[in-house]
Amino acid sequence: MLAMNYRGPYRVRTVERPMPEILHPEDAIVRVTRTCICGSDLHLYHGMVPDTRVGSTFGHEFTGVVEEVGPLVTNVKVGDHVLVPFNIACGKCNFCKQGLYGNCHESNTMATAVGGIFGYSHTAGGFDGGQAEYVRVPYANVGPTVIPPDMDPDDAVLLTDVVPTGYQAAEMGGIKEGDTVVVFGAGPIGIMAARCAWFFGPSRVIIIDHVDYRLEFAKNYAKCEAYNFKSMDDPVVFLKKTTDWYGADVCIDCVGCEAEGNALQTFTGKVTLMQAGAATALQ
């Protein structure tokens, strides 16, 4: 099968890889029908995630058709079209029982602070991801969810990461009825956070960015106010003025960890990447 293959910082290839196999009675093999490139994948691509090993296959957002199941799989069957959440969770440990699937104690032998994640380095378990033709999906009774027949796969794949991430940002913000919410960053997560914020009853949702086409899309899709911070003398003063000097009740940061900062930050970041590249070359 064809799969994306990581060769070191800023180097990826498409290569032939062996077909995945059932390794545990609760495994499933899924033929990928949709897969996404997440902003988080750029952290891997840039060499910024610890223990991202040469030969890894990225991809933690995908849908697919179940091709094979282990003998203990009962939640899905061959032929089901499923969406696969990015978390890999056993469903039985203490964390999973609390709904903390991202902290599953059984799915990641590499760490105790985080559970397994598809295609996200050996720090997150070393599982191959969905940027491939086929994927082995562990704990198939827990994660994969059958896509309703009236749902477009292009919509379903957004439920694997983008929508729940934006929703959780809004939920964790503790938005109350009548609040003013400001979302920084009009990328996919920021747009979803702005749209999901309305579920919690705010009076205003404002999104800030500097890319006009993103702001225009956010304004129409998330039904929020959208402003370009490059058109402001001081974004803080602007937000104060537009809220009668109270400021926002809830702020949600959806800019990401690789936002461009000052010259010193850019320089030190490039030095770090050079060191990572040198380390990879020595392996």
Rank of each mutant, 00 (worst) to 15 (best):
G178S: 13
Y213T: 11
Q98D: 14
Y167K: 01
M192S: 12
G178W: 05
P148V: 07
V211W: 00
F118R: 02
Q275R: 13
Y221G: 06
V255A: 09
K92P: 00
D27Y: 03
T160D: 12
R214V: 05
G277E: 00
V69S: 03
T242M: 13
G115R: 02
A113Y: 10
G190L: 00
Y45Q: 12
T74G: 09
K92H: 13
T123P: 06
V183D: 11
A226E: 01
V69A: 03
Q168S: 12
M151V: 14
L282K: 12
Q283D: 09
Q98S: 15
V236T: 13
E26G: 06
I191N: 03
P144Y: 01
Y227L: 00
V237Y: 07
P149W: 12
G8Q: 07
A226I: 01
P18Q: 08
N87M: 11
V78S: 14
W245Q: 14
D212V: 03
G247D: 08
P149C: 05
C257E: 07
G277A: 08
R204Q: 06
V157W: 02
N103E: 14
L72N: 13
M151I: 14
P71E: 15
A169M: 05
V205E: 08
V65I: 15
T160M: 09
P138D: 06
V137A: 07
Y101W: 12
A111G: 10
C257Q: 10
V250T: 10
I252K: 01
K240P: 01
E258S: 13
D80K: 06
E177V: 06
I37T: 07
V146K: 15
Q98L: 15
D150K: 04
K223H: 10
L44I: 14
S203I: 00
G166E: 00
V182L: 04
F217R: 01
Q98E: 15
T268Y: 05
E106N: 13
D234F: 03
V182R: 04
D150I: 06
F217M: 09
Q275L: 14
G173M: 04
K97G: 09
V49G: 12
D233G: 15
V135A: 02
R34S: 04
N103L: 14
N75Y: 00
P149F: 06
I29K: 11
A156N: 07
V69I: 15
I88H: 09
D80P: 12
T63H: 02
V237G: 01
L273R: 13
A194P: 08
D128Q: 07
V182W: 05
V135G: 02
N228I: 03
I175Q: 01
A197K: 04
A111V: 05
V255D: 02
A169N: 11
H81A: 11
F267K: 09
D41V: 02
K230P: 02
V183R: 02
H81T: 04
P235V: 08
H46Y: 13
T35H: 03
T109R: 15
K97M: 14
G256E: 03
F229A: 12
V78C: 05
V142D: 02
I117C: 03
I208V: 15
